[in-house]
Amino acid sequence: MHRTLLKYIPEKAVPLVEYLINEHKVRLKIVNQRQTKHGDFRTFPNGQTQITVNNNLNPHQFLLTLVHEIAHHVTHKKFGRVQPHGKHWKTVFQHLMLPFLQPEIYPKEILPHLANYLKNPKASTDTDVNLSLALRGGQAENGKSFIFEIPFESVFQFKNTLYKRGNKRRTRYECLNLTNKKVYLFNQNAEVKLITSNI
């Protein structure tokens, strides 16, 4: 497990993660990228549990996702069936993440955003724009742009569907689906492929 973890998370975090995995008897499976989630936790009818994390995440994303899912596992063991991202999970997640909040593990570009997010963690780190951008080093995937970077009324592709970027609401962008003509709200850090720019 040590050598596997070294490939996916910051080196200084490995002993802490190994401790969590052994202490809580975590079954970890590293899987190919999924479009809709970075990781998940599930229980099986035989009582066994399993955590999966996407293999395409950078070390800082991978570590945060893994601890997020371990928090689900610990919450389930301690409290049984409770709200997935309710107060029990938030408390456990905050407690488990605390030892990782050090500059040897999370660089100074990420630490303040991570500490702020952990005051009231949400189901997805992607909802926290500042943290999400910091975790990605301010860079979208190759060949893609963040939606806030593309011009108004540009056409872009997201999950094989074409949209036209509209106005920004408080934190999200109105985008017209060019197939069904419905308007959808996109997080400003959604990664999309620019097709045509209106500039």
Rank of each mutant, 00 (worst) to 15 (best):
His60Cys: 03
Asn58Pro: 04
Gly143Ala: 04
Gly138Leu: 09
His73Leu: 15
Phe100Ile: 11
Pro112Gly: 09
Ala134Lys: 14
Pro59Asn: 12
Trp89Asn: 03
Pro84His: 05
Arg136Gln: 15
Thr125Gly: 04
Lys77His: 13
Trp89Cys: 01
Gln102Glu: 13
Glu104Cys: 02
His73Lys: 10
His72Gly: 04
Ile105Pro: 00
Leu63Asn: 11
Asn116Tyr: 12
Leu101Met: 12
Gly137Ile: 07
Pro99Gly: 06
Glu69Ser: 02
Phe62Tyr: 11
Gly86Leu: 01
Ala123Ser: 14
His76Gly: 05
Tyr106Met: 09
Lys90Asp: 10
Thr75Val: 08
Lys77Asp: 12
His85Ile: 14
Thr65Val: 10
Lys122Asp: 03
Lys90His: 08
Pro59Cys: 11
Ile110Leu: 07
Pro112Val: 11
Phe93Gly: 06
Asn58Trp: 14
Asn130Leu: 12
Asp128Lys: 00
Gln83Ser: 09
Pro107Phe: 10
Lys122Arg: 15
Pro107Val: 10
Ile70Met: 09
Leu111Ser: 04
Gly86Met: 02
Arg136His: 12
Val129Pro: 00
Lys87Leu: 04
Asn120Val: 04
Thr125Ile: 15
Gln102Ala: 10
Glu104Leu: 08
Pro59Gly: 08
Gln139Lys: 15
Asn116Ala: 15
Glu104Met: 07
Tyr117Met: 06
Leu131Ser: 02
Lys77Phe: 07
Asn116Cys: 11
Trp89Ile: 01
His60Lys: 03
Lys108Asn: 15
Asp126Tyr: 13
Lys78Pro: 00
Ser124Thr: 09
Ala134Ile: 11
Lys78Glu: 15
Phe62Asp: 12
Pro103Ser: 15
Leu135Glu: 01
Asp128Ile: 04
Asn116Asp: 15
Val74Phe: 11
Leu63Phe: 08
Gln83Thr: 03
Val74Thr: 05
Arg81Ala: 08
Lys78Val: 01
Pro107Thr: 06
Leu131Phe: 05
Asn130Val: 00
His76Glu: 12
Ser132Glu: 07
Leu101Ile: 10
Lys119Val: 11
Leu64Val: 01
Asn116Ile: 08
Lys78Trp: 07
Leu96Pro: 02
Asn58Glu: 14
His88Phe: 11
Glu141Arg: 15
Ala71Glu: 05
Leu66Thr: 02
His60Thr: 13
Met97Ile: 06
Ile110Asn: 06
Asn130Trp: 03
Phe62Glu: 13
Ala115Trp: 01
Thr75Lys: 07
Lys77Tyr: 09
Val129Cys: 07
Pro121Ile: 08
His72Lys: 06
Gln102Lys: 14
Asp126Pro: 00
Ser124Trp: 04
Arg136Phe: 01
Leu111Tyr: 03
Val67Pro: 11
Arg81Phe: 09
Leu64Thr: 01
Ala140Asn: 02
Lys122Phe: 02
Glu109Tyr: 04
Val82Pro: 00
Gln83Arg: 06
Leu96Ile: 02
His72Ile: 02
Asn116Lys: 14
Thr125Met: 11
Phe93Cys: 08
Arg81Thr: 13
Gly80Ile: 07
His95Leu: 05
Glu141Ser: 12
Gly86Asn: 09
Lys87Val: 07
Leu63Ala: 08
Pro103Trp: 00
Ala71Asp: 05
Gly86Thr: 05
His85Tyr: 14
Ala134Ser: 15
Asp126Ile: 06
Val74Glu: 09
Ala134Pro: 12
Asn58His: 12
Met97Lys: 01
Ile105Lys: 01
